[in-house]
């Protein structure tokens, strides 16, 4: 355990898992959508569902969707900010199945009509894990710089991405590929050790068949 894990994070209270982690989850969902959301449906599960009001989990998730960091004092007033920024949202409780007790499902729509659903858990100390992106199983913690690419399930796409990373000396720490079915939509989540320069992201975007490339930068 590192010194800077024991001390910190600097955060808005009252709970690292139910408040700071929730803000982070909302934040990653916004990044994965790739554009500011205008509509959000949030479903809270387990301990999130049972204690969200007292912990401000709902406020923190909405704040995250607005792009506020876990130490942003606007979290307290995030519902007012949502109205100002044109984000309509609903918060409900539900059973998301066999998942971590602190789990939320977030369904987002952007102004240009793009949709995305994310399932993520707050696993303690403000750390989070995204376990599902639009129905596909993934593992994304945001602790390392991460590339999330969506494309049709065809041979060679992953090789195209990894060869670009190899060329610029970006080392892959972990990688996971999932698809909705053979030849259907696939998602590739690649955690790397280095910074990912913008020109590398652009090069990946220009690969044939790539539909969407998102970079989640380490916090």
């Amino acid at each position: 355990m590192r010194l800077l894990d024991v001390l910190g994070p600097v955060m808005i209270g009252p709970s690292s898992s139910h408040t700071a982690g929730a803000a982070r989850l909302g934040n990653i969902a916004r990044i994965l959508l790739g554009e500011p959301p205008i509509r959000a449906r949030i479903i809270l599960h387990g301990s999130f569902a049972a204690t969200y009001r007292g912990h401000g989990t709902d406020l923190a998730l909405v704040a995250g969707l607005l792009g506020f960091a876990p130490d942003d004092e606007r979290i307290r007033d995030s519902f007012t900010w949502a109205a100002r920024e044109g984000l309509e949202f609903s918060v409900e409780t539900g059973d998301l199945g066999d998942v971590h007790p602190n789990t939320a499902r977030i369904e987002l729509t952007s102004r240009s009509g793009k949709g995305l659903s994310v399932v993520g858990s707050s696993v303690g100390g403000g750390k989070v894990e995204i376990t599902e992106i639009s129905g596909l199983p993934v593992s994304l913690t945001g602790e390392k710089n991460t590339i999330v690419a969506t494309y049709p399930d065809k041979p060679g796409v992953v090789a195209g991405i990894t060869s670009i990373l190899a060329k610029v000396g970006v080392n892959i720490a972990t990688m996971r590929v999932a698809r909705s079915g053979r030849g259907k939509t696939a998602v590739c989540v690649i955690e790397v050790d280095q910074d990912i320069p913008e020109h590398v992201v652009q090069e990946v975007r220009r690969l044939p068949m790539i539909e969407k490339v998102i970079v989640v930068r380490a916090q």
Partner: peptide, 18 residues
């Protein structure tokens, strides 16, 4: 109390014991 009222704190080591 600042923590409980959604103010800014340092988790040291946790928010509950800040």
């Amino acid at each position: 109390e600042v923590n409980a009222a959604m103010g800014k704190i340092v988790a040291a080591p946790t928010a509950g014991s800040c």
